[in-house]
């Protein structure tokens, strides 16, 4: 057994999703190499080397890795993959963009968003918006895997792996980054936050989403999320969406405000430890998964809750 994990980073710091993927790889066992591909990203390689469980860091530093284009990164991963039994990445938008390209070129299946590892070739993954868990076995020579980050603890710090420079592949020149609009926020990252305050269509507008929910999130030091309906209506940006086709979260506390609880939304938050729902409709499906339900008008209840904290 030997695992290659693809690190996710922004050339400056390592994304915490990488730590969850490392834990999954460590469960498989054997050598565990972490590939850091980027531009002027030595600081990332340094923090990668300190992750417990990592036995070696492979560093590919070149200008055309700065933007993480899947065409270029896949070519690099393929060049490095020889000899590994497993290639893993977190099931983030970056991992989902990249890994199927790697799998297809290796002519192997990809095993998407695993939540448990039964053995080196057998994995559990949710299907049908998390309503079903499938146990699947791969007979392929190399297992290409994306890891649902909320299902594996973050690996700790304290290791001291060697960093080995690897040769960059030629720039494929197939894709060019024009711009990035990243949400700037002082709040914790949604996918890794301990408390999440999420709002749905019940908020009625972007203005009231922010006016009603922000003070509560501020008091709790919480990340903010949303239902698809709230994102579609433009209350908040796309990266707030929690659900089957958005972000998967599993915080200690998830507070759903004005969210009905469609299965696509539940798929993204039902693994949270404690779920609170505030909704004026006592029959809303969200109450079926909520540990504590509060029936009433969110415009009265949320400010009252904020004041009581």
């Amino acid at each position: 057994m030997s695992c290659l994990v693809i690190a996710e980073h922004d050339n400056t710091s390592l994304k915490s999703s990488t730590l969850n993927a490392v834990t999954a790889a460590a469960k498989i066992g054997g050598e565990l190499h972490l590939l850091v591909a980027g531009c002027a990203c030595t600081s990332v390689a340094d923090s990668a080397a300190r992750i417990v469980g990592v036995t070696k860091v492979l560093l590919a530093d070149a200008p055309h890795y700065a933007d993480q284009s899947p065409e270029n990164i896949a070519a690099l991963v393929l060049a490095q993959a020889t000899g590994f039994s497993h290639v893993l990445a977190p099931a983030t938008t970056a991992g989902k963009n990249l890994m199927p390209r790697v799998a297809a070129r290796l002519d192997v299946a990809q095993i998407s968003e695993i939540v448990a590892i039964e053995s080196a070739d057998t994995f559990v993954r949710p299907i049908y918006a998390g309503n079903v868990l499938a146990t699947v076995q791969s007979s392929d020579a190399v297992k290409v895997i994306t890891v649902r980050t909320t299902a594996f603890e973050a690996a700790g710090e304290g290791g001291s792996a060697a960093i080995e420079k690897v040769t960059a592949q030629a720039d494929r020149g197939q894709s060019r980054l024009v711009s990035r609009e990243l949400t700037q926020s002082a709040r914790p990252e949604l996918a890794a936050a301990k408390i999440v305050v999420s709002g749905g269509r019940g908020l009625g507008s972007g203005e009231s989403y922010h006016r009603v929910l922000e003070p509560l999130a501020d008091k709790l030091g919480a990340a903010m999320g949303a239902s698809r309906a709230a994102v579609d209506a433009g209350y908040v940006q796309n990266d707030y969406q929690v659900g089957q086709t958005g972000k998967i979260v599993a915080p200690q506390l998830y507070i759903a405000v004005g969210i009905s609880g469609a299965i696509q939304h539940l798929a993204g938050m039902k693994e949270s430890r404690v779920i609170v729902a505030i909704n004026k409709d006592a029959d809303a499906p969200i109450f079926q998964v909520a540990d504590y339900g509060l029936v009433g008008d969110l415009f009265e209840l949320v400010p009252e809750l904020t004041a009581a904290l």
Binding site: T93, Q174, S175, E181, D239, K247
Partner: peptide, 16 residues
């Protein structure tokens, strides 16, 4: 020229 939904927000790329 495609705008893509990514974890941190949006990115626009140009592909041949």
């Amino acid at each position: 020229t495609v705008t893509r939904e990514i974890d941190g927000g949006l990115e626009t790329i140009e592909i041949a």
